Computed example of a mutant assay.
Amino acid sequence: MNNSNAIGVFDSGYGGLTVFKSIIKELPDYNYIYLGDNARAPYGDHPYEIVYQYTLECVEWLFAQGCSLVILACNTASAKALRSIQQKVLPVKYPNHRVLGVIRPTAEVIGNYTTSQTIGVMGTRGTINSRSYPLEIEKFFPAVNVVQQSCPMWVPLIENNEHLTPGADHFVQKYLQELLSQAPNLDCILLACTHYPLLVPKLLEFLPEGIQLVSQGEIVASSLNTYLLNHPEIEAKLGRNEPPKFFTSGDATVFNARASLFFEENVASTQIKALQDR
């Protein structure tokens, strides 16, 4: 398969499509491959070793398709696998390849969104338990207080298209109240799961005034733009002007139907069984 050195975008399932959409909007000329590991999703409750194994397999699959730059558009994969891949795998096996995540670029700017110096982070259990966001945010904004809340029911609600129904109200209110009880003065909530932007209309129904919701798509897209400007040797090798390609380890028909909810366009994917059969 010749993909003319596309940028690879990976997620355990559908959520990364919200980031992918923002990347294409900001950087429309490059070639892209999106891979969703739907057959083995969700990653949020898996232990570190499993997330690392699955993520590395997907990254190496994208490398094999000609992607020399891969974006982990998944908070769980970024939290549990990115650093090990960058430090242990790339220098030894793929010295000319790069893998970037979503946590660091978010941490670099999130402190600019708060005046109360208190930020709430809402994500999957895997992301929250990793404490990646408090640790990274402290490096750039040491004065900012970070409180966290895991939201295990939000991804299933979104993927079953129930997230904007009255049935979602209980779990939206529950997790918001649990977060706000930790820090009533917070004025910024980071949606640290790429699924969660789809919940914004529902969140706004129950969110107190004066609290800003921050999604990651535009932040990651802007960071990628800056990265390519700072690394012209990588940017020069990237292919251009081919339509994006979509792949899933799950059922392509199911993926296509659900992906349009996240990508806001019709998606035609191809199923790959190399990951599913491992």
Rank of each mutant, 00 (worst) to 15 (best):
P95Y: 13
N5E: 11
P208M: 04
N225S: 15
A252E: 13
Q212I: 14
S84N: 13
A257D: 13
F63H: 02
N2T: 07
L35A: 04
C74P: 13
D11R: 03
P28H: 08
Y30C: 05
S215D: 09
L199M: 14
G126Q: 07
K88W: 12
Q149T: 01
L72K: 00
A268P: 00
Q173G: 03
Q173R: 11
Q173Y: 00
Q148S: 12
R104P: 00
S12Y: 09
T115P: 01
G15C: 08
E242Q: 15
L275V: 02
N161C: 12
P166F: 12
V147R: 06
A168V: 10
R278A: 11
F20M: 15
F20V: 12
E138W: 05
H97L: 06
A107M: 10
K139R: 15
V102C: 08
K21G: 11
G126P: 11
Y196L: 06
E242G: 01
V155D: 00
P244I: 08
Q117L: 10
S130R: 05
I128M: 03
G210P: 10
S181A: 11
A192C: 07
F20Q: 09
V99K: 03
C74E: 01
D277C: 13
G250M: 09
S181H: 11
L224E: 02
N75I: 01
L207N: 02
Y30P: 13
E218I: 13
C188E: 06
D277T: 15
A107S: 12
L190R: 03
L207C: 06
L135T: 12
L186A: 01
P243R: 04
A236F: 05
A143T: 13
E233R: 06
G36N: 08
P184L: 10
S181G: 04
T127K: 00
F141T: 07
Y34Q: 01
L186M: 01
Y30A: 04
L62C: 06
P42Q: 02
T106K: 02
L72V: 02
L90V: 06
E108A: 14
E108V: 11
L180M: 15
S4A: 13
N225F: 15
R40W: 13
I119L: 09
P232W: 09
I7H: 13
C67G: 06
I234A: 04
V109S: 09
I103S: 03
Y34K: 07
F263A: 09
L275H: 01
Q271I: 00
L179A: 13
L229Q: 14
F263H: 07
E138K: 14
Y54A: 02
V9T: 08
Y48G: 06
G13Q: 03
E26P: 10
G120K: 05
A221D: 12
L275M: 10
L82R: 05
V146A: 12
Q216S: 12
K237Y: 03
L27V: 11
Y14D: 05
T115A: 07
N31S: 14
